[in-house]
Design a protein around this nucleic acid. Structure first.
Lengths: 229, 229
DNA sequence: TTACTTAGTGTAATATCTACACGGTATATT
DNA sequence: AATATACCGTGTAGATATTACACTAAGTAA
């Protein structure tokens, strides 16, 4: 049985593509929708923009309402505006992305009941997505690929303290190819944005690796320079 | 005397940042507005999107209506959505850019009378612009800077046949710095996307330079590879 | 004590980047 | 015809960056 959906005015929405990294896998944050259209489908966290908020503000609010996540710096990357992309009318969507540390601290508790639940899903095992969200996701993934190639920001996905092997792992998963260990280390350390903590991993079987931390001050100096992987 | 402006619904518009190159100067296409708000101000060609067209289609239509220019491939680069950016209500604007061959052939004849006239203006001598168009222009300029650094597309701004010196000139003007002649040629030719026409400039005082043409077939092979200036 | 697993390290060959200067050639001028 | 002018077109050496490649060290588990 078909439900009749209300017609929405010409308007615009935000969709967020949040990437996380866990257990060697790249994950994306999805919600399960609780409303028509696409009720019970998985989708990127997204909703309509209010009249009285900027796009950036709106993105932060929507992410919070649908997933409980706050204080994430997201960046706009593309606006999707094909006709027919939304069954209820002419709605264009401004897409944002961010890379994010996973961990128990960021609770996934939707506040609005527009979302039933929110989950981190392995990007290799995506369910069918609502609207044109597969396309939005694909472009978001392309975006972070380009970005980690040119800026040493992969540690945004890692815990504060991380090993070089973990960092290399992030690169390999996102770029989809193996990198040479010695060359990777040489290059990464040459950027001079990592601080050696003189500290070792704990609670790991076999030899523990040195922990590093991202050094914001040094990063400032690098910023804008061309680098590439 | 203040006019009362109609309130527009929440909706969206397109603004186009078109770059051209003429007489050694980088130019941008502006219109003189014929309607409130900002009547008689200079502005980027831009207007509201219709319900029945995609953003890309809309950009092409709007450019044509306001400037007479057709068949230009434009690419979206950012969406501007601060509150208060438009005095008549909540209007976000999707910005497009393109690089374009100038020349007598592309007539600048606005079709809609929303624009009084359209002109190519030296980017170094911009008049005050309507709305937040200065900001949109600035970001458009940043965009083409990044783009010509990574893709050998500067000849989009030049006539079909061009000399290496002209091409270098485009790079120098856009990047805002001098480049070494020998190194520039070495690098540009190494990309293997230029075809030597075995033909010389005509009608020029002093020694004539060799003409080159962009070779689309070869470009296909390069595409996607990382290059940089 | 041994087996296992991951950490951590150097070098040589190649490719790319940078800095740098002058003779060649068509045109204009006298 | 000779000369001045202004732009064209080219090479190299030194420095830097990239690539390919394999073993020993250290800690844990049995």
């Amino acid at each position: 049985m078909k439900e009749v959906l209300p017609q929405l005015n010409s308007t615009f929405s935000i969709d967020c593509v949040l990437f996380g990294f866990d257990e060697g896998e790249l994950k994306v944050l999805l919600i399960e929708r609780n409303e028509e259209p696409f009720k019970d489908w998985w989708a990127l966290p997204g909703y309509l923009v209010n009249e009285n908020e900027s796009l950036d503000q709106s993105a932060a609010r929507i992410l919070h309402e649908l997933t409980g996540i706050e204080n994430v710096y997201m960046e706009q990357f593309y606006t999707f505006g094909d006709i027919g992309r939304h069954p209820q009318g002419r709605i264009i969507s401004v897409a944002y992305y961010a890379m994010l540390r996973l961990g128990g601290d960021k609770a996934l508790k939707p506040i609005s009941n527009y979302a039933k639940q929110a989950h981190w899903i392995n990007v290799k095992e995506l369910p069918p997505l609502a609207f044109d969200h597969q396309k939005i996701f694909d472009q978001g993934l392309e975006k972070i690929k380009r970005r980690i190639k040119h800026q040493p920001i992969a540690f945004e996905l890692l815990p504060e303290k991380f090993t070089l092997t973990q960092l290399q792992n992030v690169y390999e998963v996102i770029l989809g190819k193996k990198l040479d260990k010695r060359n990777f280390r040489k290059k990464m350390l040459s950027f001079n944005v990592l601080k050696d903590l003189n500290e070792k991993q704990k609670g790991v079987s076999f030899r523990a690796a040195t922990l590093y931390r991202f050094d914001k001050r040094k990063y400032g100096k690098l910023f804008g320079k061309e680098i590439s992987f």
